[in-house]
């Protein structure tokens, strides 16, 4: 069961729904250790993507879908998450460019490129209490799953579960990047909103693969 354009579109739609549903939760997380705009910004960005999905040409590939997400998030989000998620989707799009169907290995390439995009843009490292702390375990788990012969849905499930655990694990970390880094030890005990939204978006990818 490889994943095609329908999956990519369904992923984006589901991600938009999930972000909207968790908007207040993300705002609250961000208000505790950031500037409180994460949920609102991301919701605005994904909402802006939806009409563009309807306008995609019929022969669009999954990479084309992700590219639309990238450019829309970059130009509509306004906070740090726009360039960060935008670059993630842009690099992911590049990794699978031209392919009509994505297999398990392709998903690992997609996720790896997305993570590398976030690292490139944000210059954060694992353990800095950022979205990297969701993305890197997700990439590692996806790679391990693909290597052991899992199918596409199982690879995405492994990635989402690892991202969720990674997001929870940010609670014990001191932030070294972004607005939360100004808080020092006071950020300990709070979950990083970017790691949480990353986990939500990766969970949406699983749900789209039914």
């Amino acid at each position: 069961m490889t994943l095609g354009t329908d999956w990519a579109v369904a992923w984006v739609r589901r991600a938009a729904e999930v972000i909207a549903e968790h908007r207040v939760e993300l705002i609250t997380l961000d208000r505790e250790i950031g500037d409180g705009d994460h949920g609102e910004n991301l919701d605005r960005g994904f909402t802006a993507v939806l009409p563009k999905l309807d306008a995609l040409p019929g022969d669009s590939t999954p990479g084309d879908v992700l590219k639309v997400v990238a450019t829309t998030l970059i130009s509509t989000v306004g906070g740090a998450s726009g360039p960060l998620f935008g670059t993630a989707y842009l690099k992911a799009s590049g990794a699978i460019a031209g392919r009509a169907e994505i297999d398990a290995t392709g998903l690992v390439e997609l996720l790896t490129a997305a993570r590398d995009g976030v690292v490139l843009r944000g210059k954060a490292e694992a353990g800095d209490k950022t979205m990297i702390d969701a993305w890197t375990p997700a990439v590692d788990a996806a790679a391990a799953a693909a290597e052991s012969g899992s199918d596409e849905r199982e690879v995405l499930e492994a990635a989402a579960a690892a991202a969720e655990a990674g997001a929870v694990a940010t609670e014990s970390l001191v932030a070294h990047k972004g607005r939360a880094s100004y808080l020092g030890e006071r950020a300990v005990g709070h979950r990083d909103p970017g790691a949480q939204s990353s986990a939500l978006i990766l969970r949406a990818a699983v749900e789209a693969a039914r």
């Binding site: 970059i74 906070g79 740090a80 726009g82 360039p83 960060l84 935008g86 670059t87 843009r121 944000g122 972004g178 607005r179």
Partner: peptide
């Protein structure tokens, strides 16, 4: 100015 301005400019 603040952090994400740099990210936007770099993007």
């Amino acid at each position: 100015d603040l952090g994400s301005a740099v990210l936007t400019a770099e993007t």
